[in-house]
Design a protein around this nucleic acid. Structure first.
Lengths: 357, 357
DNA sequence: AAAGAAAATGATACCGCTAACACGATTGAA
DNA sequence: TTCAATCGTGTTAGCGGTATCATTTTCTTT
């Protein structure tokens, strides 16, 4: 041993979690870490052959980049709020599942915020920016609140409306064709042979309601039938309103042979009331709903309804917002995009051909 | 200018997002960044006076530490899976909201995973560890699946059972006192004056079912009443089963004056059937449920039920798991903790005193 | 074919925070 | 009084990526 004093520092203890890093992949592929990063992020200027080698290495090692490091190293953080008004809304869980999937895909953080209208929209916007929220996801019914939309937009927050009937110019929107779906359902009832079809409208404050009613009316007209105003009764999407509405419909003479409710809760109410009137569903009365929420399969008979791909919608909206937040600095701010996803008519047990008396 | 060549590198462009850092706080407080970190993480060995100064600086600047940097700098990552079997279960959204709150508090990542029993439990465990899941949150009914629990535990994954009736020794558990809650509800019915109280049992595969039934029976015995086996009918938590069960109860002579269903879906079915029998709820028949899911407020009259603080439960479980994952390296592995949260009896419109005929 | 432009890749320095260690100031024990 | 243990705080070196610039290679162009 020489007399020179040893350097004081000993080799530091590794803190690393032992997980793979870009360096491991780089070694395996015989390139530099930077090239690996380029491949991962699909940045151009990588020879196809190199890219292939790196991709092979990634696959071989089953490498997953560390999101924390990623976001720390320059990629802007991205916190997206899901603003809801009703924590027990039936669609919320599907909503969350979809958003969460989108969030983890884009390495965004999902923050669930609640707003019941107690604060003013402006205060809410303030609260959100204080919480460093970068964008907001708006499920119904909040997606149709004009004052809210205005306030959030004024705070320069990118917005996404989900399942709205009236997309605004300054927000992204993902929805289904409510009018078309209601049209399809009505056609389905017509095809079964129904001619007197009652319709229970939805909450007039939600934009989708009018669209659904329009689809119903168009289908009747297309079939050469008159739209009888007596067969259209108001509702507000609650079970209770469905009870009142169906009472009005079922007391008519002649009674409608089918009732199309604007959502499943009201459809469930129709079934309950029909049973109280000693009517068999679907033998004496066909009932159908809209949304395919848990209620549709909770009751008996299970309700024929329109399925909205809620999880998908939330997923798409999430990706779109993350994109927008990350691209905010760049010059090419894309115009808001209004996307329409396909709905499905799911036939269950509450519909049948009209019964000849 | 001197002739020496300028260093090639120019000052780098700042990539920072302009957000505050520990350094800013340190400057403001006149200490080093490390001391700020110590204060934030409540590590000991900081003079109270220094701590106060730092805390003041944090408050003044409204500083929030960057979670990405935090986890990158050593704190072990923490990915927790919420494993569910039914994406549209009524409680799932509350569940997610609570878990998400816990996740953001502890800087853990929540991953939602679905399992319908298609894969073997062992394969599932494999899949989870492949996805680098560190711990698993189990809501009902999965929290009672013995094979699943065994497989996950064998993979060394910390587990938390939520709302289970039978906590296992090797998992954390957060639940309510199902037996006590059922007892309380039954006492409530007795206090109203009911003596013939029907009971609809829950799915025998879920451990909470037996507890609820036991609570019902104990309350009757406490009141000096016999437990009439004819008044206890089986169910499986579905609306459909509630329909069958209540048919059996309502056809008895004398008819029960109250029916206590083990969950809200079945209670809703009781109401529907009662209406079909031209019975007014609650005038002719008192109905109550359990869980306080969306169904309880969807139907009319709204159902008197037992509220489980699902969001809180998920929240607590989440914190516990994050703790456990982070403490995994340390020697003092705490014993699993079984926690019991308070329930609430929420009175709505489906109960009343028995009506004298 | 030489010079120049463009493309591919590498090297370096961070992002914001904290583990590990260093070090001066107290405090306590011998 | 001297030396060691302790405490409070500062210093250094990463964590695992990526922005930026440097360098090398390849392809044009005249």
């Amino acid at each position: 041993m020489d007399g020179a004093e040893q350097p004081k520092r000993r080799p530091r203890v590794r803190r690393g979690s032992g997980e793979l890093t870009v360096a491991d992949v780089a070694r395996q592929a015989g390139v530099s870490p930077m090239t690996v990063s380029r491949v991962i992020n699909r940045l151009g200027n990588v020879l196809p052959e190199t890219r292939a080698r790196v991709e092979a290495a990634i696959a071989a090692l089953d490498f997953v980049p560390n999101p924390a490091a990623r976001s720390l190293a320059g990629r802007p953080q991205c916190r997206i709020a899901l603003l809801h008004s009703n924590p027990s809304a039936a669609y919320l869980s599907e909503f969350l599942v979809g958003s969460l999937a989108g969030a983890s895909e884009t390495d965004a953080q999902l923050v669930v915020e609640h707003w019941d209208g107690g604060d003013s929209p402006v205060r809410l916007a303030q609260r959100l920016t204080d919480h460093r929220i970068d964008a907001v996801l708006l499920p119904p019914p909040l997606c149709d609140d004009a004052a809210l939309l205005a306030a959030l937009s004024a705070s320069n927050l990118p917005l996404a409306q989900i399942a709205t009937g009236a997309p605004v110019a300054f927000a992204d929107a993902v929805s289904i064709d409510d009018e078309g779906a209601a049209h399809a359902m009505t056609c389905h009832l017509l095809a079964l042979g129904h001619r007197r079809i009652g319709f229970i409208a939805g909450d007039p404050n939600q934009t989708a309601s009018a669209l659904r009613q329009a689809g119903y009316a168009r289908a009747l007209r297309d079939a050469g039938l008159d739209v009888d105003p007596d067969l259209i009764v108001p509702g507000d999407f609650t079970y209770r309103s469905g009870l009142d509405a169906s009472e009005r419909l079922l007391s008519q003479v002649p009674r409608p042979t089918a009732i199309f409710a604007s959502n499943d809760d009201m459809a469930a109410a129709v079934i309950a009331l029909a049973h109280r009137h000693r009517l068999d569903v679907p033998h004496d009365l066909t009932v159908c709903g809209f949304d395919d929420t848990a209620m549709a399969r909770a009751v008996w008979p299970e309700i024929t309804t329109i399925r909205q791909p809620v999880a998908d919608m939330a997923h798409r909206a999430m990706l779109r917002l993350a994109d927008r937040v990350r691209a905010a600095a760049s010059p090419d701010v894309r115009a808001p995009l209004h996307e329409e996803l396909a709905f499905t008519l799911v036939e269950r047990a509450s519909d049948a051909q009209p019964h000849e008396k």
